[in-house]
Design a protein around this nucleic acid. Structure first.
Lengths: 348, 348
DNA sequence: ATTACATTTTGAAAGCTTTCAATTACTCCA
DNA sequence: TGGAGTAATTGAAAGCTTTCAAAATGTAAT
């Protein structure tokens, strides 16, 4: 592999000149400039990202730390991030944490040794993580939190209007005539789960519907979680007529549970999810959901990160906290309670 | 950030000794060793991956080049890869190519400047790509092709039994009584599309069913592709009673097309896909499919890659070509032709 | 032609690690 | 105690780039 020395020799100039031409870091007379460019072309020269990073104290890599690509909400986010990173000459290092604090920390510590330009994090733990991240930032990396954010984070972040989305979903259900509305939440140490829960409660409160302990089930953001807790809800003496699952994976689990108990959706139970995955419209029944702009979430995060990187040293610029909108998508999984004659009556 | 010099000074030893302790690259007396380790601990020292890579001519990064994480088949593959990479101290750089040759090349050229330990590629083009990859390999990186492979590739690869999977799907349909079986293929310059098509043809041939031009539609591996070509198939005078879509995304498009034309699946048309995505069982109707072990595909690829990296310089070791099995998953989207009374008769 | 000044160009240092040849320390035996 | 031989330790070079102070070149004015 050719290096700068080769170029310098071939073009008959010094190392410094080659560097200046390549980086446009100083005025170089046209003839020399041409000779260098020709040599670069002839030898197919590409600067070593390692040496460059070592010298500059910063590489063009962005660490992206997420819980699990396999959760169908995340690929769009990753894609949005990768696209705008790529477009700006940056690369993405993907790290799955499985919501494990230990893995999260291990990834971060490793990443740091690469001097990445920045970090995009969908955190699953807080506390020690925040410290680690703060130290990252002090050492010059830009950090953007995505989707979830530590309570007292002062830097940049992108999230969605979780509270509002949930609120409007509940409001819609109430409008249809539902009074017994349950909620399956994600792990409540996660801010987004908290916010969606708050939105749910706000909706009920506004309509004067009391909030029942039994109707709020703390679960995990995956299908089996949704399945299990839906089962529990559906077996209540006072079975809910509508279930709001805090993400689509849990909503799918809910649909399975409904099927398992030989109930029907939406006649016996309405279901509404959160995320609006691509597949929702193909499901049986098509799943109503609250749309989150996944791709945009990722691309915005990288955009903010790069802004921060480029503004360079104006660390004074206060952290931005951008919130993207959500949108209610109604589909056949919701209907007024006891919509059809023959809908099974609740056991009480 | 602390560096080796700091450690050396603190422990009262030379740079060389620190390095030896950290890498176990030479015998170091126990007292010195302890002092170094203590210093490392005290200062929270971590070797610079950049300097190390520069010196060693190789980093612990693996470039993973795929068409699009957003295609729901890939996340599992990526996850499998990332997991076994992580477990072995390697990191994944994710690159989406959108099936674009140009992007593919750009990613590769960029990756090379990082001296990655290896590359895992799901290629979307061949020809020039193969050259580039070959040159990568000569420069010391291990390369594994995944899912698709250039025709004359001599190195490592992991794929699945595409031909066989397709064959068995077709065989099953025939067994149910279908005679008019169509196939929606992926882009035929992709080997996996080719192989699945070959399997389809083999199945028909074996049963003595003639292969109709009209029943084979070359499409793209996504939902709209499937939708459009399914529409075309369903409008044929001699409408097929079963459609084999070469991946689940296209199969979903097919279901939409069927719905659009007010036909019913499986009564009017049976549908079978390929991939067996997680969501298939929740669809309407649940989609029969040929299962591919996505996670295993990714993890095997990284495993092979690391084997190659570690065996070190025994470049003589011949390329391995591993083929993972596929499995037929029958669900309600397939049934005998004209299963129910009232199934619309084909218009001639 | 000389001086002063602006513009280009250069060479070396720094960034951090690994590795190898050379040096130092140590053990054992005569 | 001296010397041979082995084991442990060291220091410097190399890997590739960027950057800065210094050197060289060019221009203009006197």
């Amino acid at each position: 592999m050719p290096n700068m020395k080769h170029i310098a020799k071939m073009a008959g100039v010094s190392l410094g000149t080659v560097s200046h031409v390549i980086n446009n870091s100083a005025r170089v007379s046209e003839p020399l400039r041409q000779r260098v460019l020709e040599a670069v072309d002839a030898l197919h020269y590409q600067p070593s990202a390692l040496a460059r990073g070592l010298r500059r104290d910063k590489t063009n890599m962005i660490g992206m730390v997420i819980p699990d690509v396999t959760n169908p909400f995340f690929p769009a986010v990753v894609r949005g991030a990768e696209d705008t990173a790529f477009a700006n000459g940056y690369r993405l290092v993907l790290c799955n944490t499985d919501n494990s604090h230990a893995k999260e920390m291990e990834h971060l510590e490793q990443l740091r040794t690469y001097l990445p330009a920045g970090l995009i994090i969908i955190p699953s733990s807080f506390g020690k993580l925040s410290e680690e991240v703060e130290s990252f930032r002090r050492s010059g990396a830009a950090v953007v939190f995505l989707d979830r954010m530590p309570r007292n984070w002062k830097g940049d972040s992108v999230t969605v209007s979780n509270n509002d989305g949930a609120f409007r979903a509940v409001q819609y259900l109430i409008q249809l005539g539902h009074k017994r509305i349950a909620c399956i939440t994600g792990p409540l140490h996660l801010p987004n789960a908290q916010e969606r829960l708050a939105g749910y409660k706000r909706g009920l409160k506004l309509a004067g519907i009391p909030i029942l302990e039994d109707y709020v089930r703390k679960s995990t953001f995956d299908r089996v979680g949704g399945y299990n807790d839906a089962l529990a809800l559906l077996r209540l003496r006072n079975r809910p007529t509508a279930i709001f699952a805090q993400n689509d994976l849990m909503a799918m689990g809910t649909l399975l549970a409904i099927r398992e108990l030989k109930l029907r959706c939406p006649q016996d139970v309405s279901v509404i999810g959160f995320d609006d995955l691509d597949v929702t419209e193909l499901m049986d029944p098509p799943l109503a959901s609250i749309r989150q702009p996944g791709y945009q979430l990722g691309s915005t995060a990288v955009q903010m990160l790069l802004d921060r990187v480029n503004v360079d040293e104006v660390r004074a610029a206060p952290g931005q906290h951008r919130v993207l909108g959500t949108e209610l998508r109604i589909r056949e999984s919701v209907a007024p309670p006891n919509a059809t004659i023959g809908g099974k009556q609740p056991t009480r």
